[in-house]
Design a protein around this nucleic acid. Structure first.
Lengths: 331, 331
DNA sequence: CTCTCTTATGCTCAAGATGAGCATTAATCG
DNA sequence: CGATTAATGCTCATCTTGAGCATAAGAGAG
């Protein structure tokens, strides 16, 4: 390898993969292609075409045609192109490499009921189906305890010198009895489970059959490496809402503060302290009154507010970061 | 476009582009290929090869061979592949598209004096040569005032409905008399200057000759879209040091707290308040004493400290964010 | 051998931001 | 009408930040 100008190399298939996220009834959902019987659902993906002026335009144009929704927000996530991508990938063929440029897109809650979707070949899948352990809104302990004990076993099984490092990684990503985990580390947690062989993709990618006990409670696998791509999106989105007002892309024009909070909770997977959440939103000037009220609250009617678009990328870092409540205090 | 499995499309040349950053004598530098006489410097780039197991491994292996330095830290930056990428790109050829997967790499200060480099065809270029306006460590005003007035003119020249939006964008990215700008928005600033035609690449990419006044003070252009890639790296790195301890990848094994601060300042482009910076570092437990002292300080000798590697990805968010001092208070 | 200069290091203080509760208000549903 | 369900408002103790001041410990000049 030299520093000479790059030259074209071996055949590379490039596709654009979309992680389209919506929030439906406090559940974050992702657009997937329906699996055939027994198969795994896949993220929508399409080949990069010559007509596409920009990568993002390519992604945007065909997703919009598919979903009939305006994609409010689109950002490039990551480019996946490791040769180790599994052999059951139909696009690989003849020793070529497949490159997937993944994008994250957010759409407002319109026709996003789970199961229904704009195209009959697609469906909205709750993302916590893929990562049940990432939802700590109600009772976090069942999942955490199980995964931690499985991972502890993996740590103990490590070769001599690696034991401490593995144990420490588990502690950092999954927390321990005394400390919560960091919601943003969803990708690291998935990767750790993969390495530990606790998700079936690990065995499949190695050409083996996963042990059955592995499948229990390990979440729903997606095609190829799509669960990893989804985990990347979850991590990115959880980080992003802390400093950019992207939550509003997931909400209708007008909404109540509780709905905003529930959306934040759905994404981050933790329950938030209501008064503090409101204070945060208020002092940041992110929303303004519409003068209307929402009556269907089940209790006292709530003000309907709207996002102040003119503040969309204002100075410091608007967005919704807020304190988690102690466990169990969700509703 | 359908949701069918992706198929191989038109020829795509894929290369891995590296933004290798070091800090030399309080100056952030980037590794570039020396330009031919009159030409523009380019970032090192090499084609993606079939042997590369992972993209990052590919990037890492050949950069390490080139520089004889261990790349402490490598992360994927962004994939550039817009069709509008300029025509003087030697790798494009026959209507094919070029895809560049850019990586950010950090190396410790070893042989990184400006101008010297591991390979005679390469050089370390101060990144503020490309973005003089991004260095606000001493006196920010000369650049800011000039760019703001040029951009104000661009705003005023906008078609009727766009005027307000343009003016607002300028205000958000470049700040105004009363407010500083956000150091992380380096990429947005470059892109705004590009759109406004204030950097020569804008004219070149359009196949035109830039007006000479444009060139004055607009920084040093790089080959193709490499200045944009570098701006992406600057923004990413400035954001990253706030919540991950990556600064240490840019420092030798042991260092003084002032050197750590100067490195943070070099990257972020702003002068920091010394006592507060120390307090921050101390309370985060990022460093530990070595017991040794550094005598060459010019004043009272300073303790030599070292980064606590075991804390490298600890819970909340270690890293170096700190308050900027008011202007002019650098040294 | 002091005085001066330079940088290291420590301390204090006032604001602001955060984490956790408690109290009131206003609808709906039997 | 009383119970239930939310919406909204307020308070308080802690942390965290932004800024400035004071002292300590070397090198060099005179």
């Amino acid at each position: 390898m030299t520093l000479e100008p790059p030259v074209t190399t071996s055949a590379v298939a490039v596709d654009l993969t979309a992680v389209v996220i919506a929030v439906s009834e406090d559940t974050p959902v992702v657009l997937v292609r329906r699996p055939e019987a027994g198969g795994r659902a896949a993220l929508p993906a399409g080949p990069l075409q010559a007509e596409h002026g920009t990568l993002q335009a390519g992604l945007r144009s065909w997703v919009e045609r598919q979903t009939d929704l305006g994609l409010g927000y689109v950002e490039q996530l990551y480019t996946f192109g490791d040769r180790s991508r599994p052999a059951d990938d139909p696009a690989r063929g003849d020793g070529g490499r497949r490159l997937s440029i993944a994008y994250l897109a957010l759409v407002p809650p319109l026709d996003t009921a789970v199961g229904r979707a704009p195209d009959p070949r697609t469906a909205w899948m709750p993302w916590y189906d893929a990562f049940p352990w990432e939802d700590l809104r109600s009772d976090p302990e069942p999942w955490r305890a199980r995964l931690r004990s499985a991972l502890a076993a993996w740590g103990s099984a490590a070769p001599k010198g690696l034991k401490a490092a593995r144990t420490e990684r588990v502690r950092l990503t999954f927390g321990d009895e005394s400390s919560d985990w960091d919601a943003e580390r969803a990708l690291e947690r998935y990767e750790l489970l993969y390495e530990a062989g606790l998700v079936p993709e690990a065995a499949w990618d190695a050409g083996q059959t996963p042990a059955t006990e592995v499948l229990d409670g390990a979440g729903r696998p997606l095609a190829i490496d799509h669960r990893r791509i989804l985990a990347t999106a979850v991590s990115r989105l959880r980080g992003k809402i802390k400093y950019r007002p992207v939550l509003f892309e997931l909400l209708p024009e007008t909404f109540t503060l509780l709905r905003l909070q529930r959306t934040a909770e759905a994404i981050s997977g933790v329950a938030l302290h209501k008064p503090n959440f409101r204070r945060l939103v208020a002092q940041q000037g992110l929303v303004e009154d519409t003068g209307q009220m929402e009556a269907e609250t089940g209790g006292r009617p709530a003000k309907l507010v709207r996002f102040r678009r003119d503040v969309i990328s204002e100075r410091p870092a608007p967005g919704v970061r807020a304190t988690a409540t102690r466990r169990g205090s969700y509703p």
